[in-house]
Design a protein around this nucleic acid. Structure first.
Lengths: 203, 203, 203, 203
DNA sequence: TATGAATGAGGGTTCATTCAT
DNA sequence: GATGAATGAACCCTCATTCAT
């Protein structure tokens, strides 16, 4: 019985490992070469599995791409949350700016990541449409932030919308700022952005 | 001599017409089938020219795509400007909200256009990197709006950045709202967004 | 001991059942989708067994295909024989025409079957090359008909060849007639065909 | 002007030649390796053109296959007609048997051709459904034979059907006879077959 | 300038078959 | 015997690009 159980788990473990290998391999290549120049063959070669194996785990290149975008956006949020929590920040205002700061710095230091996530940062915590292994965690991060926002400023009517606007504003403007200095270089733009975020939560 | 001149003009006109045909054809197909499913052949067939002719006017599919995005974004701004000017609006606040309203309604009525322009609305007036036939006009629209913003609220430090933020906020959040009801349906989201825009220009 | 015996039988029964399931599943799919569009996976999925199990019973897709063609052709003959026997027909001429009629009607009513058996109807009783579970029965049907033909018309030199010609003539021409109206629609063609069959056995 | 005309023809000629190369290449390979083991790559490699070129002339493998079957069946008939005409045969009966003899001998000497044409010999002159370059010629051969049959035996009601039956009978039974000695070896079977053909046209 | 036949690399995908469990 | 994950060769086909006309 025990033996039987163990064997089953071994197969299951193997499958999970294969899937993770493929995800890691694809992420690597997407970051290095971009999605268009990465082929399924590249992904499987890099993962050390046969080409056909890819199709046991994912539908096509866009399937794995979407899953990665969501995963990486979420992980970035997660890291930022941990970072800001470690700093024992007092007010929500400080917390949200700290999160923004962490994410922006991560993008500045890893422009490939910025290009990869693109303007889709919000998918990290706002992808209700997808059933996914991270689903539960997404909601947690989102719920925590929304609750804190509400208790920080009770006048805000729709915390969900406000939070979403903040994230989209960061994501879309920093993309242009970091990569093309539009409307300004990120150094000059950041204070303006932060000022705006403050207004959004302070009313 | 006269004859010669006329013929040259005709040739020039023909060339311009071919280019316009190709742009129109590509726009049509991108809207109907999306970029990935549209091939150069599709574009040339639809434009009534030979495949090789495409390469006399554009570098590749992404070249024509980019030019179209910029053109259509600009045209949308242009229409919105005309619309708001016709209404003899007094304050800049009313004007900017009117422009936003026009653009959002255009997107609601033409979701294909929304998918096409995506989150790149700002390219319509913020694409300094590209030398283009609309270049001059882009700047005009932008300059007008920036000037008006400055005179509306002299406390704003960087009108360019503020305007950019407003446009990016509209573009990125309305994309999700109209297409996926994230964070809310556009009906419920619009007042919240407008409220935010007001705060951005009023301090 | 008894127990052991019973279990063995059960296993044997299970194996037979699996084989039958696979045959039935393949027949179903071949009829619906054609052979080229049916994969081994389709067959095993539809039969409710694992992919590898297929290879315990058959060599490949063509192996099961051939066995099915032979089986179904034979069964059609068998039905036709029963049908004609039930009608207490007197002469062999009437009998053979009755069999032809039954088969043609079966094809008209089930064009998928016609496409499946194709022009291979004669395999139903003339597949000496194959050792098969129906082998014995094939011979019976064939022997009966050959004997009856001989006693019907003693001048016929080679009853086997004559019978074979009749079957091939029916099979090959009705295929075109029923499916494509070549050389005529089956309604118009049948009397001509029957007339020909009469000549073949009457000299 | 002349120059223009010539240039156009050159291109047209090139295209025709490419098409012929592909047909010849495919025929070669189908005969040597069979259809299933012949890939498009094989065909284009053997024809000395790029893989993509195949798709400028044919839809897929089955398209070229079908065209070849029809072409080769027709050519066989054509040869047989020439052969029998050269022998200044008097009666139609002699002529049709001569044609049959020629075709059967061709099959005996070239079993690959027999396997290739299979039981589809009649397509050579009975493929009304297809518009094809040989279309006109098919009809000629068919019309000649049908007319001759009618004048040979005015009692025959439907010459078209009778001719079709003869061809199908030859095609389907000789396939089995030559390749598998079913129902008899071709040597023993041929006189029986010929006797049957005589009955078919003599009533 | 305009053409469109030809190219051929490379794409995604399938699927018969194997084999460790 | 039964499984089904894994394989990877081979498939068909597309399409951006070139270039002789």
């Amino acid at each position: 019985m025990d033996n039987f159980d163990t064997e089953m788990t071994k197969i299951e473990e193997n499958k999970l490992e294969k899937r993770e290998n493929l995800l890691a391999s694809a992420y690597n290549l997407f970051m290095r070469k971009g999605i268009h120049k990465t082929s399924i063959s590249d992904i499987t070669d890099n993962a050390g599995v046969a080409k056909g194996t890819f199709y046991l785990y994912f539908i096509d290149k866009w399937d794995i791409y979407e899953k990665l975008i969501i995963e990486r956006s979420y992980l970035l949020f997660d890291e930022a949350m941990i970072y800001s929590n470690n700093k024992r920040i007092k007010s929500f205002k400080e917390k949200i700016l700290d999160i923004a700061d962490y994410i922006i710095n991560a993008f500045i230091e890893n422009k490939e990541l910025l290009k990869f996530i693109g303007r889709n940062l919000s998918l990290g915590i706002y992808n209700d449409s997808l059933v996914d292994e991270y689903q539960e965690q997404y909601k947690n991060v989102r719920d925590i932030l929304e609750k804190e926002l509400k208790s920080y400023n009770s006048k805000i009517k729709n915390a969900k919308a406000t939070l979403f606007m903040i994230i989209e504003l960061i994501s879309s403007t920093c993309y242009d700022s970091i990569l093309n200095d539009i409307p300004l270089s990120i150094d000059k733009y950041k204070p303006i952005l932060f000022n705006e975020i403050k207004k959004m939560i302070d009313k």
